[in-house]
Design a binder for these strands. Structure first.
Length: 442
DNA sequence: GCATGATCATGC
DNA sequence: GCATGATCATGC
């Protein structure tokens, strides 16, 4: 034990034991400091304070491990508490910068990323918007590494990203390309660009990160009932989409009623999610661990014989005051647009019955975000100028529109300038969904 | 036939 | 009681 440190930097167990003493406490309680920089001014300042004042080592931005003697990385990550009292990761967990020039020469098993995620000391704290960071409570401090059952999907994610760099398309990388691991943008400002090896087009700097949905699942895995999709011998190396398709295929051609009967389910509102659990062999009252980690929501879409979805897709009703005030990037709508879906597709047959015909994963492409923003800003302008009753029509926007979504026309929300107006929400256009589904099915 | 407005129904 | 997912109804 090194006296002035409080732990032995040559002994991983000693480091972890020392870290665990933080659990249940705030930095103010354990450190003799009065102020740290606000995370609003400098991201990661809470984590920096832990490194600097609790573990007392020099901040490094080089690529050596934080605890170099034992090869362990320290990662701190904020959790937020929902109104229902559940904890969720507030943000993705950034592991290490991607060097486009080097990464194309790596293979996954020996990648820089795996080295960084091989042995992690994970410290999670409860973030509160109205609290001094010094008072954030530490909830978890534990040693962690990527579990072996997640490796096939993470490898697939890694290769998806690296493949784009190898094809000279690093500038086209998107967080929506992948499931657990993502290449998230990371730069001081949005104008910074880095060179890539197989194209002259410079690309945004990106870092390897585990998605917020993945970190949420990691944190809550022990608390909530979650089940893996059990893999048969021949399915061990399948990525998530391949596995899900494999399981759904034998049921193609059945109607929703036939499927419900097969799994002994009555008519119920969340039938899609329940049938999905049934087909994937997960108990009815459990969550699908893989879907939690990837943040995937199953959604039924009924396609008419001509391929057009029968209905548009709705989001929760919005608050007129919030839309009036919030910039697009801070809005709830923006958050909903980051959602990944498993579309469970039923297609109308010649006899008029809707039969299970396909499944695909989908997330709104980054390129369409601008069009969605245009819809948001147009509605925002309507509300601000005293026309909250005027919606954005589906003919006015390629991707989405605004429509009522309440109990009935008496079901209203207050507005800044028009009194009470019927509850409304944003919707994905049917035509847009049709195009996107066609693309997703190839 | 489609866009838009309106409403139903389940489950928390 | 209300949010949310799903669907119906009307009028252009």
């Amino acid at each position: 034990m090194t006296e002035n440190l409080g732990y032995n930097p040559d002994d991983a167990d000693s480091i972890v034991e020392y870290a665990r003493k933080l659990v249940g406490h705030s930095l103010r309680e354990v450190l003799d400091i009065k102020v740290i920089q606000s995370p609003k001014q400098r991201r990661g300042s809470w984590g920096n304070a832990v490194e600097e004042y609790y573990f007392k080592y020099d901040l490094n931005s080089d690529s050596n491990p934080d605890f170099a003697q034992v090869g362990m990385e320290l990662k701190t990550t904020p959790l937020k508490e929902s109104t229902q009292g559940k904890f969720a990761a507030k943000e993705r967990l950034v592991l290490t910068m991607i060097n486009y020039m080097d990464v194309v020469r790596e293979d996954f098993e020996h990648s820089h990323l795996l080295q960084k995620a091989n042995d992690v000391l994970l410290i999670s704290y409860l973030w509160r918007s109205d609290e001094d960071p010094l008072d954030y409570k530490v909830l978890v401090a534990d040693r962690w590494h990527i579990p072996s059952e997640d490796i096939p999907q993470i490898k697939k994610d890694w290769e998806t990203v690296v493949q784009k760099v190898r094809e000279g398309r690093a500038h086209e990388i998107s967080g929506s390309d992948t499931m657990y691991l993502e290449a998230c943008t990371k730069a001081a400002d949005s104008t910074v660009r880095r060179p890539q090896p197989f194209s002259d087009i410079p690309a945004k700097p990106r870092a390897w990160a585990l998605k917020a949905s993945y970190m949420t699942a990691v944190q809550s895995g022990l608390l909530e009932k979650m089940q893996h999709i059990q893999r048969a011998a021949g399915e061990k190396d399948l990525d998530l989409l391949a596995l899900v398709r494999n399981r759904f295929e034998p049921f193609f051609g059945l109607t929703e009623e036939e499927l419900a009967r097969q799994f002994g389910m009555g008519r119920s509102k969340n039938l899609c999610a329940r049938i999905t659990r049934g087909i994937l062999g997960v108990e009815d009252d459990a969550k699908i661990e893989e879907f939690e980690k990837a943040g995937i929501k199953p959604k039924t879409i009924r396609l008419q014989a001509n391929g057009r979805p029968k209905e548009a897709m709705s989001f929760p009703a919005f608050d007129y005051f919030q839309v009036a005030e919030q910039p697009f990037e801070d809005s709830d709508f923006y958050g909903y647009l980051q959602q990944k879906y498993l579309f469970v597709l039923y297609r109308e047959d010649s006899d008029g019955a809707y039969r299970l015909s396909d499944v695909c994963f989908w997330q709104m492409p980054d390129n369409d975000m601008e069009e969605a923003e245009r819809c948001y800003l147009q509605m925002q302008n309507n509300i601000r100028t005293g026309h909250a009753d005027v919606s954005v029509r589906s003919t006015e926007n390629r991707c989405c529109h605004v429509r009522p979504h309440g109990q009935n026309s008496q079901d209203t929300n207050p507005t800044p300038h028009n009194g009470d107006v019927v509850k409304k929400c944003f919707w994905f256009n049917q035509g847009y969904l049709q195009d996107e589904i066609a693309k997703a099915l190839g």
